[in-house]
């Protein structure tokens, strides 16, 4: 197994009205390919900040992140975008589907960005897989929250990412729907051998990950490895 994600001594400090505010302090972790990691903690504990840093959406104030062999701090934003395009998939709490695209087109989008000729057939197959084969031509506003998140998951897996970042994927869903989404996420994760990093409040979801990272006040409390 090779390390796909290595973070060393990460810290993030942002300016605020009361002076510099530290939201993340000296955090290190290593993820092997195929691992799953849950980042848990209370609101404001720095979970989303950490996710942003690990995915290369933001740069740390100190420390380094190595993602799929690329040292993110040494890359400019455009180069980081290329790393994301090649290796990373995302699932968001608020789904982040494009309103003007229907379900199929939303899933096709990353494939089209890559210029793949089989975008349409692949996207169809993925939507079938997440159980939305009958709703290909529905716009996001015509879909329920759970359906929208399934489209988002199909989109995240469309480009065959090496690592998937999920930010509160069940946060906007009721318990039952959330459970279905969770199942789907882990099934696909297993099928495709994708590394999974997710931020969640949901203890049940967290427990399904191999490892948990509990944050409080920007520090790692416990890093547990579950069987």
């Amino acid at each position: 197994m090779t390390a796909i994600l290595v973070a060393r001594h990460l810290s993030k400090v942002v300016p605020s009205a009361e002076g510099a505010l530290s939201i993340l302090e000296d955090l290190s972790l290593t993820l092997e390919s195929g691992d799953s990691l849950a980042i848990v903690g209370t609101s404001g504990s720095g979970k989303s900040t950490l996710l942003g840093l690990l995915a290369g959406l933001d740069l740390p104030s100190g420390g380094s992140v190595r993602l799929a062999g690329h040292s993110l701090s040494e890359l400019d934003e455009d180069a980081r975008a290329r790393v994301r395009a090649e290796h990373v998939g995302f699932v968001f709490q608020s789904f982040q589907l494009l309103d003007s695209l229907d379900a199929l087109e939303n899933v096709m989008l990353p494939l089209e960005l890559e210029g793949r000729a089989d975008a349409s057939s692949r996207a169809r197959a993925l939507l079938e897989r997440v159980g939305l084969g009958a709703r290909l031509r529905h716009y996001p506003r015509q879909l329920s929250g759970g359906e929208q998140q399934r489209v988002a998951i199909a989109r995240a897996f469309a480009a065959d990412p090496d690592i998937l970042f999920a930010d509160e994927p069940t946060g906007n869903l009721d318990t039952e729907t959330g459970a279905h989404i969770t199942d789907l996420l882990f099934e696909l994760n297993r099928e495709r051998g994708t590394t999974l990093v997710l931020v969640t409040h949901d203890e049940r979801l967290a427990r399904r990950c191999q490892r948990q990272l509990r944050l409080e006040g920007g520090r790692a409390l416990v890093a547990e490895v579950l069987a």
Binding site: A55, L57, E77, D78, A81, R82, V83, R84, A85, E86, V88, F90, Q96, L98, D99, L109, P110, L113, A159
Partner: peptide
């Protein structure tokens, strides 16, 4: 303004700023 989210998403999906 209606495309602020979409353009952030496109950046996540790997499009460069340009």
């Amino acid at each position: 303004t209606r495309r602020l989210d979409a353009s952030a998403l496109l950046r996540c999906l790997g499009l460069s700023r340009h």
